Amino acid sequence: MSQRPDTLEHAPLGRESAYPEHYDAGLLYPIPRAANRAPLGIEEGKLPFVGEDEWHAFEVSWLNARGKPLVAVARFRLPADSPRLIESKSWKLYLNGFNQTRFDSRERVIETLERDLAQAAGATVSVELFDVDDAALAVCRLPGECLDELDIEIDDYSPSAEHLKVGEEIVEETLYSHLLKSNCPVTGQPDWGSVLIRYRGSRLDRESLLRYLIGYRQHQDFHEHCVEHIFTDLMAKAKPERLLVLARYVRRGGLDISPWRATPGERPPEPLRLARQ
């Protein structure tokens, strides 16, 4: 992998790029997580959560040993404790490099992906390849109760924990909203998504929670950091015994991302892929 500053200033995102036709691991562009975590009071090595960034790539193709094209859908799982995330456009450019590259087997494709992504992220990355009609890719619905029909008035579109209100009753519930929207920190393009919150602790006021989530509507940040922002705000404000925050973002450029962060012992529901993905 080429040596270069891992900052957004030099990232391919928002720049005109030539799409490669041959494999090049150097196209992957890692970005340290620490800079975005510091404002949330999160120290590397002392993460207040466990979690993963789950990616699906729907434009994966390569040539077999005889030159015949093969296609698949890829699922990648990048651990939240990896020191680096991988910038999405560089990931897409990297995958495009497989299009005219020959591999002896499907296993060799997986081995190559796992090796290159692990080097970029600084941690083990799991890779699965699915046939395009595999039942594992079936569309599901989020579990729990939807907040979106609440009739609320909103005039603040910035993510402020001051919007959150907490009651005294201890509950265990799963809530979700399809009204999550944030913006790319480089291009300003909208990132649409759904967010699920599962917790045990003092009851969250639902109107205040929906108002808080809608507050990300004009916020510019990566998907992963938005989820970490929500997690840390909920932990600070409500202090739940258990908490899971999961976002399922809409596919863009053939890639979707679904980060989740949770207290130790919590896991997201699986399998789970929404119609907008």
Rank of each mutant, 00 (worst) to 15 (best):
V127A: 06
A135I: 14
A80V: 03
N96S: 10
A57D: 01
L137V: 13
R84G: 05
L129N: 04
A118P: 05
P159M: 14
V109G: 00
S61Q: 09
F103R: 05
L85A: 10
P83E: 02
T124M: 13
S160F: 10
D148E: 06
D116W: 00
D104R: 12
V139L: 13
F98P: 02
R66D: 12
A121Q: 10
A74R: 06
L93K: 01
L147W: 09
K68H: 11
G144Y: 06
L147K: 05
R108T: 07
S82R: 02
E114P: 10
L63G: 01
R84N: 11
L117T: 09
L150A: 03
I154N: 14
E59R: 02
A121W: 12
E128F: 14
E128L: 15
Q100K: 14
L85V: 13
G122A: 01
F58V: 01
R84W: 08
D134E: 13
A57W: 08
A135P: 12
G122M: 04
V60G: 03
F103D: 05
D151P: 03
L70P: 00
D81G: 04
D131H: 13
E114L: 10
T101N: 07
D134A: 15
R115I: 04
L150M: 07
V60R: 03
S126Y: 08
L70D: 00
E107W: 03
E87A: 03
D104H: 09
L150G: 01
D155F: 12
R77S: 08
A118C: 09
F130V: 10
D155Q: 12
L150H: 07
F98D: 02
A65I: 08
V125W: 06
R141L: 12
D151S: 11
S160Y: 08
A135G: 14
C140A: 15
L117Y: 11
E162D: 15
G144K: 03
V60K: 01
